[in-house]
């Protein structure tokens, strides 16, 4: 095995460059190193100007998402040794479909606004006073939404979604999965409030079920599943208001 491995990293400086370009770095190839370790090595030892986001380096914070050889990956969970035998540099690029601020750092306000629009919190018609105790939930009820609650907002699913790339108004996989996380929660009563945002063209109906979001998700959230399941719910609700207008809210 070679001692070093080359990384081809996308560099972009908003002050100097009109277009980004690749810069190649050789880093030691260590068995226990992930792509993020290599980037940190470059920043510490070779080129301190390289800019990227990371924090937990253990797949929890969701900030180290980048394109590695064209695939959206958490760089803290992607081992360099996986690429050692390919005999070509490992390409590291910022997450696809997001505007690039600098080097590997992308602008994610678009996602933040969308996430907020689906009201990802427990909505109660009437809050009960604290003195009445907590809202109880059985393990079965927890199980219904637990998978969707694992999302770490890493946005790999957006970078995998051609619909989001072509039509940036699409609310996108994670935001819809997180809306479902609350819709499926037995303590929540806000499903109809979220429906206005979700059941429109920019919401679930924008999705054509490419299914890549689910494949790249490092937390097995299955956003594609969440969207298709919600399509079913929305259709049933629509028929209900159509057949029984008096029951509509």
């Amino acid at each position: 095995m070679a001692e070093t491995i080359s990384l081809e990293v996308l560099r972009y400086s908003p002050e100097r460059d009109a277009e980004p370009s690749f810069q190649t770095y050789d880093v030691p190839l260590r068995k226990d190193w992930v792509v993020l370790d290599a980037l940190n090595y470059i920043k510490d030892k070779v080129d301190g100007s390289l800019t990227f986001r990371w924090s937990c380096r253990m797949g929890i914070c969701g900030s180290c998402g980048m394109m590695v050889n064209g695939e959206p990956k958490l760089t803290c969970a992607t081992f360099l040794s996986n690429y050692a035998n390919e005999n070509k540099p490992v390409r590291v690029q910022p997450l696809r479909y997001f505007p690039v601020i600098r080097d590997l750092v992308v602008e994610v306000t678009d996602f933040m606004t969308k996430l907020q629009s689906v009201k990802p919190w427990l909505i109660r018609e009437k809050e009960k006073p604290v003195s009445d105790g907590e809202y109880l939930q059985t393990p079965d009820q927890l199980d219904r939404y637990k998978q969707f609650s694992m999302c770490i907002n890493c946005l790999l699913c957006y970078a995998a979604c051609p619909v989001y790339g072509l039509d940036p108004v699409f609310i996108g996989p994670a935001a819809i999965a997180l809306a479902q996380r609350y819709n499926m929660d037995s303590r929540d009563e806000g499903a109809h409030e979220r429906m206005d945002v979700l059941a429109q063209h920019e919401g679930i109906w924008g999705c054509t079920f490419v299914g890549e979001c689910t494949k790249v998700c490092p937390k097995h959230v299955d956003p594609a599943g969440a969207i298709q399941q919600y399509k079913l719910t929305a259709t049933i609700e629509r028929f209900k208001t159509f057949l029984m207008p008096w029951a509509a809210r």
Partner: peptide, 22 residues
Amino acid sequence: PPTRYTEYHPRWYRPRVSTWWW
């Protein structure tokens, strides 16, 4: 597109989606 990004931010690079993405 009418997405709301942060105002007064330095220049961004916005990659284009190729027609042949598929």
